[in-house]
Amino acid sequence: MAIIEIKNLTYTYPGATKPSINDVSLKVEKGEFVLITGPSGCGKTTLCRCFNGLVPHFYQGELKGEISVAGLETLKHHTHEMARHVGLVFQNPENQLFALSIEKDVAFGLENLGVSQAEMRQKVDWALHQTGIYDIRERSPHEISGGQQQRVAIASVLAMQPEVIVLDEPTSFLDPLSAEKIFEVIYELNRKQGITVILVEHRLDLTAKYTDHLIVMDEGKIFFEGDPRDILNSEQTRLIGVGIPKATLLYQMLKKDGLNLNKTTPLASEELADQLLEALKKW
């Protein structure tokens, strides 16, 4: 069974006139790395809130359709029950950290779950190591950079050992280098720990290479779903306002001008560089 199953989900915020999620159906298999993108206001954040039951438990409003994550129907299970299975990382790192030291923040979820002190220590240390912030565990949140803060936020959901981690534009407050490090941490968790990752991102330049399941949303609907190489190569995707990776754009231009390049669309600069070298050798 798929780890996330959504059938005909439609959701309207209280007081809103039109639904923010409109008839969305989606299946995510265990261990997948799913990338969601789309113009702002298209409902990505709202969809993320559905995964752990913030919608509808926290936000109220009207939810129709079916959604189950890790075998639990979010309609029937409160967010604090879902928290063991789904970790949510939000956009602004500053507003996710509330303790006065990093390790205390990482422990927050486990404390809420009533985990024993010894077990907590072990899980906290594990999460700190996985995200590379073990050495700064005793600092306070304002002594560290935004990138480190976001890693703390990741560690703090990781400590609860969820099957799924959902990250909503985790790097939009960060510089490109810190962003890249965050993506590497996420990719490692996916590959080595087998955690299912749902990543919402605009920076496809840096992230498209990690996934083979891309979702493009627009106006509350799933517009395209599938292999990023096909989707990002299509003209329609560009017209919605999706940030196509530069390597892909350059590939399209060169191809149009008659350069005989490999058939697979490159998603990252390294891939394009390889293809160009290959083409030049044949010349």
């Binding site: 970790g87 507003n95 205390k104 779950l113 024993s116 220590r121």
Partner: peptide
């Protein structure tokens, strides 16, 4: 807005899951 975001983050980290909270330190 900040407090709403905080509340959301707290909920997502199992705030209120049990009455018997434990503590990392003692």
């Amino acid at each position: 807005r900040r407090s709403l975001e905080l509340a959301e983050a707290m909920e997502s980290r199992a705030w209120g899951a049990t009455k018997k909270r434990t503590n990392l330190y003692s």
